[in-house]
Simulated scan of single mutants.
Amino acid sequence: MYTIQSSQLSVSIKTKGAELTSIMHTGNGLEYMWNADPKYWAKTSPVLFPIVGTLKNNTYYYKGKAYQLSRHGFARDMEFEVTDHNEDSITFSIKDNEETAKVFPFQFAFDITYKVEDEELSVTYSIQNNEVSEDMYFSVGGHPAFKLPLVEGTAYEDYSLVFNQRETAGRWPITKDGLIELHPNPLLNDTTILPLSKELFAKDAVVLKHVQSHSVRLQSDKTEHGLEFSFSGFPFLGLWAAPGADFVCIEPWCGIADRMDTDQQLEHKEGIICLPALGSFEVTWKVMFF
């Protein structure tokens, strides 16, 4: 376990999956991360790479060959190497190996950098295509789970997510097999506010595509404490909680689960990123805690 610190935050990350495990605000004494209670969900913030969500039959095809990848890919289960560590920042790294090549036939380097400054945490995903002459196709995303309610004396239903722009956006349903249905259901109608309730997640995650907002606040009128989550550069947003659990995941995604009508060809996958030979890709999400 490694820790980085700012004047207001102490953040812990483990090497397996480069997974965030704790965000403690030393100024107000609040822990913001879910406690990974295995009764509900034994993770806190898995990293999603090289896919986001579920593939149809856990399979994709590339250059005529079938490859199997389980939901959200392999990075969350890999042991990362610490390649840089300062008081306020740390970088974790993995590269392709014989095992990854069996399910993802590309040479790559994947770095995750966590940095704290005052009350803000930033998380940067950096992907390098090390193929000399081949494009690389991939997705990447975050899955951090924040404790809810944040403060004693408040309830889950006291909190809302408040988008920074008015939204009219549907919720894209997820099938029992984890695939995205072809048509959205109504959710947001010219509003900034999504009230939270455990019932909201009774049918799996809330999946949003291409919203106008670039940030969302988790807040309640019963407490001054909350957080502001910035996801500029991520075209998809997932919101999720395990049934009955006291957390909410705010998930910035560059990529999405397969659609029901997918042809399973990797190059055709919705939201897939095509990175040219020897090219690099970088995207950052940030959270301000108060």
Score class of each variant (00 low, 15 high):
residue 41 W to H: 08
residue 226 G to P: 00
residue 195 P to Y: 05
residue 197 S to T: 15
residue 243 P to S: 13
residue 41 W to V: 06
residue 15 T to L: 02
residue 16 K to N: 12
residue 25 H to F: 12
residue 279 G to H: 10
residue 288 M to D: 00
residue 218 L to E: 01
residue 89 S to Y: 11
residue 209 K to L: 03
residue 287 V to S: 11
residue 170 G to L: 02
residue 74 F to T: 12
residue 80 F to T: 11
residue 244 G to A: 12
residue 60 Y to C: 01
residue 258 D to Y: 00
residue 175 T to W: 13
residue 235 P to T: 01
residue 121 L to F: 05
residue 100 T to L: 08
residue 2 Y to I: 05
residue 140 V to C: 05
residue 107 Q to T: 02
residue 176 K to H: 03
residue 31 E to P: 02
residue 182 L to K: 12
residue 42 A to C: 08
residue 106 F to T: 05
residue 154 T to E: 10
residue 46 P to F: 06
residue 121 L to H: 03
residue 141 G to M: 01
residue 269 K to M: 05
residue 235 P to V: 01
residue 54 T to I: 00
residue 290 F to R: 15
residue 3 T to A: 05
residue 107 Q to W: 00
residue 261 D to C: 09
residue 105 P to W: 01
residue 282 E to W: 00
residue 186 P to R: 13
residue 138 F to Y: 13
residue 289 F to L: 06
residue 159 Y to L: 12
residue 256 I to F: 07
residue 270 E to F: 00
residue 260 M to Q: 14
residue 141 G to R: 06
residue 176 K to G: 04
residue 8 Q to D: 04
residue 208 L to A: 13
residue 72 H to V: 09
residue 87 E to K: 14
residue 283 V to G: 00
residue 25 H to D: 15
residue 83 T to M: 12
residue 255 G to T: 08
residue 261 D to P: 06
residue 187 L to N: 07
residue 24 M to E: 04
residue 132 V to G: 08
residue 195 P to L: 07
residue 134 E to R: 06
residue 254 C to F: 08
residue 248 V to E: 04
residue 125 Y to K: 06
residue 192 T to Q: 15
residue 92 F to C: 08
residue 26 T to I: 15
residue 242 A to C: 10
residue 159 Y to V: 14
residue 241 A to D: 01
residue 149 P to Y: 15
residue 13 I to D: 11
residue 48 L to E: 13
residue 223 T to P: 01
residue 131 E to V: 01
residue 90 I to K: 09
residue 122 S to G: 05
residue 45 S to F: 09
residue 14 K to S: 12
residue 99 E to D: 14
residue 53 G to H: 14
residue 79 E to Y: 10
residue 89 S to G: 08
residue 141 G to V: 04
residue 236 F to A: 03
residue 124 T to P: 02
residue 140 V to F: 04
residue 241 A to R: 01
residue 193 I to A: 00
residue 11 V to H: 02
residue 40 Y to R: 09
